[in-house]
Design a protein around this nucleic acid. Structure first.
Lengths: 232, 232
DNA sequence: TAGTGGTCTAGACCACAAG
DNA sequence: TTGTGGTCTAGACCACTAT
């Protein structure tokens, strides 16, 4: 029933911040002051302040003190995986092609390689309930000695595809999303006969030193996908 | 030049995890074992483990030990604000209307209110370089005594609009994004003459108890917006 | 020089898991 | 009963900031 002292400290200060009693830029009482206020040791006070700092409420400047931070009210967390979204999940995948190609200007720039480096191109079609819902292209740096296992490629998400050469813990990723009108070729692939918008997701993978590993572009039928994000 | 002991502990264990020497589900040495390995005190070991835990590499179970966590390789962080995106920023805003309305079925459901509760509807048009780039509608719960300051409404992002009644620290938010073909009315507003897709962002605001405060829908011209997200 | 936060110690007691 | 992590103490030394 009784909660730790540091939780009490966290709650008190958090309340003061969200109620407006403490405002962004204001300084907090010093650690020793809080030790006296809560009749506890410095390590306990620091544990509480460390939590508030991790939660983004405060920050500290050595030699000066703790200060209230401006809230980050434009940040959202999205869970994205080309196979699953808010309104439809992929239940069948057709592997259209796997090729070794030389990149054009744009792709070479994206992958930060010269145009004579080989690139693996994988094209797939995603289905849901027998209907094509997305056309997917991945470009991966070609690496000698790292075999392409078609079976694995066929059903893998992009991070999974490269998990045999880069640890998923070390992978940096980037998404760019936008809407666009489909071209004729894409309309055919996705069985689009009426006017339907495309929802495009470009996914870039980088290694731990931020060198590009791969580029993926997924063209979703606009009526088959919604992405969802939350603050906190 | 010399770094703290806990940093060394963090780096060592993080390396073991990303190199594959330690795998998801594996257990780590106990705190006392690490105390001996690094010839340091328990609080120092715990500081290191606490950082790894915050970074999502490990978790602990009281009485059992520390374990390696599966990486969260589908998570992305987006910074969204209806006024600014990867390719265009809003530089002029036209306030189309501010009305008090009664919600239809759908809106009442979204805001979790009955249909006889008043709702404020704000319609705006966003411009960039004299071109309309987005049509924006906000629905806010009507609160007696909280005045509508047109001047503030006109230029505010959604979280800013309600910052006088709910602390930005306590605000929970949700985004739903999708692509769609514009209706005739929207095409006129956004000066769309060719075929152009719409990029739609629905933004829901909740108070700290997750009660809805407002719903915003922004219809961007597809050629004027790209959103950007990163892992980590 | 006095005050601040950052690192660290060598103990302690507790609740909980497992054998 | 032993080992684990969770909480907490009462000190210490350091580097940095402000006066």
């Amino acid at each position: 029933m009784k909660s730790p002292i540091y939780v009490k400290i966290v709650e008190d200060i958090r309340n003061k911040i969200s109620s407006g009693e403490l405002n962004p830029g204001d300084d907090l009482p010093s650690e020793t002051t809080l030790c006296n206020e809560y009749d506890t040791s410095r390590m306990t006070v620091r544990k509480g302040l460390s939590i508030l700092s991790n939660e983004g409420y405060i920050y500290s400047i050595p030699g000066k003190g703790y200060f209230v931070k401006k809230p980050d009210y434009n940040k959202y967390i999205f869970v994205y995986d080309e196979m699953n979204n808010l309104i439809n999940n992929v239940d069948k995948i057709e592997l259209l092609s796997v090729d070794i190609i030389f990149p054009d200007e744009e792709l070479a720039g994206n992958l930060q390689i010269s145009k004579n480096k080989k690139v693996i191109m994988i094209r797939r079609l995603f289905y849901t309930e027998e209907e094509p819902m997305a056309y997917d292209i991945k470009y991966l740096l070609y690496q000698r000695g790292v075999p392409i296992v078609e079976n694995e490629i066929e059903n893998a998400t992009f991070p999974e595809m490269i998990s045999n050469r880069t640890s998923l813990y070390d992978l940096n990723k980037e998404l760019i999303i936008y809407a666009k009108v489909p071209e004729e070729r894409t309309k055919k692939l996705l069985h689009i006969y009426d006017e339907i918008a495309l929802f495009v997701v470009e996914q870039k993978l980088y290694d731990i030193e931020d060198r590009p590993i791969g580029l993926g572009i997924t063209y979703f039928r606009g009526d088959y996908i919604k992405l969802h994000g939350v603050s906190k």
